[in-house]
Amino acid sequence: MIDSVDVPIIASHVPAYAHPGDAGADLVATEAVHLEPGERALVGTGVRIALPEGFVAFVVPRSGLAARHGITIVNAPGTVDAGYRGEIRVSLLNTDLHASYDVSVGDRIAQVIVMPVPRVRFTPVEELPQSSRGERGFGSTGYQTGVSS
């Protein structure tokens, strides 16, 4: 298990973990944005990182913003590849049907999770090995249609 990894960063506000053991470090807005219901905006964080090869960063929504205000990320999770050196920007979406939402400079708008990722070799084959799940897709672990509780 990897204990920690050093990630070079240029940032006006370095992402921080709110609690010991948290997987995601908070990203904050570096610009103010007003989101009307159903509106989306690309919001800057001022964060640029240099991930080591074999790592990826995922930008994910903050559960509190989603639960209280309906604010989420359009392309969640956003993927930051090891070779990317530009600013991490977050595509926020206001899913609330009635209320607008204001993002202020310094607001926590997303979290970044850094993870190791192996390089995969895709091997063409004629047939895939069997599994207990097989070809069952969405809801295959318990979702049933036509059943009332």
Rank of each mutant, 00 (worst) to 15 (best):
G44D: 08
V147C: 11
S4W: 14
A66I: 07
V125N: 12
D3P: 04
S140V: 07
E53F: 13
N75V: 02
R136H: 12
P118L: 02
R119G: 08
V7K: 05
A16L: 13
L51M: 05
A11Y: 08
F58T: 02
P20Y: 05
D81L: 03
F55C: 12
G21C: 00
E127C: 09
A11E: 09
F138E: 02
I10S: 13
A25S: 13
V56W: 07
S104Q: 11
L92K: 03
G54H: 01
P61H: 03
S131Q: 00
A41E: 03
H34F: 01
F122S: 11
S132N: 08
S91P: 09
Y101L: 08
V28H: 02
R121I: 15
R133A: 10
R108V: 15
V33Q: 12
S132I: 10
S91E: 12
P118I: 03
A16G: 00
L97D: 12
R40F: 05
S91A: 09
G83L: 05
G106R: 02
G137W: 03
T123D: 15
V33N: 06
G146M: 04
I113K: 06
G134P: 07
I9L: 06
A25L: 05
D26H: 00
G44E: 07
I49K: 11
R40T: 14
G54R: 06
S104R: 12
L128N: 11
S91I: 14
M115H: 07
V114S: 01
D3G: 01
V28C: 09
R68E: 15
G70T: 05
L35F: 12
P118G: 10
L128Y: 08
I49P: 05
P118Y: 04
I88D: 10
Q111M: 09
T145Q: 13
A11S: 15
D81R: 04
G83H: 08
A50N: 14
A99Q: 12
T30Q: 14
L128C: 00
E126K: 11
S91Y: 12
V56L: 14
S132L: 09
V60M: 10
A18F: 06
H19F: 09
V117K: 04
A41D: 01
A66H: 02
T45D: 12
T79L: 14
G46M: 09
P77E: 08
V7L: 04
R40H: 14
T45G: 05
Y143R: 12
S91C: 13
M115K: 00
R40I: 01
R48G: 02
T123E: 15
S140H: 15
I49E: 04
L27W: 02
V103W: 06
D107E: 02
G54P: 04
G46V: 10
S12I: 04
